[in-house]
């Protein structure tokens, strides 16, 4: 959550979350369709970069609010669990 507003590629998201590509991309697409995440192609020239251009994902304002709400819910559930 600390770098929540950074743009990352699908591969970077996979490394950060530990999700395999088979699980990751359906989730990214659903988040994009819900407006929680937006994506764009890198604008730098692939020839100059020496690699294919990447698709970069970034969380939207709506996504940040939803993520924070979901995070609070998880924290509350963990606290409840700890008290039992």
């Amino acid at each position: 959550m600390s770098h929540i507003e950074d743009e990352i590629s699908g591969a970077e998201a996979g490394r950060a979350t530990g999700l395999a590509s088979g699980t990751l991309y359906p989730i990214l697409i659903r988040l994009e369709e819900a407006g929680w995440v937006e994506s764009r192609w890198e604008t730098e020239d692939p020839h100059e970069l020496g690699r294919p251009r990447r698709r970069l994902y970034q969380i939207t304002g709506v996504g940040i609010r939803k993520a924070r709400a979901a995070f609070r819910e998880v924290v509350l559930s963990l606290k409840e669990f700890a008290w039992r």
Binding site: A11, G14, A20, S21, G22, T23, L24, Y25, P26, I29
Partner: peptide, 13 residues
């Protein structure tokens, strides 16, 4: 493994 994962992703999508 990533490429095989894309087959799974495509099926779900």
């Amino acid at each position: 493994l990533a490429a095989i994962g894309f087959l799974v992703a495509a099926e779900k999508m």
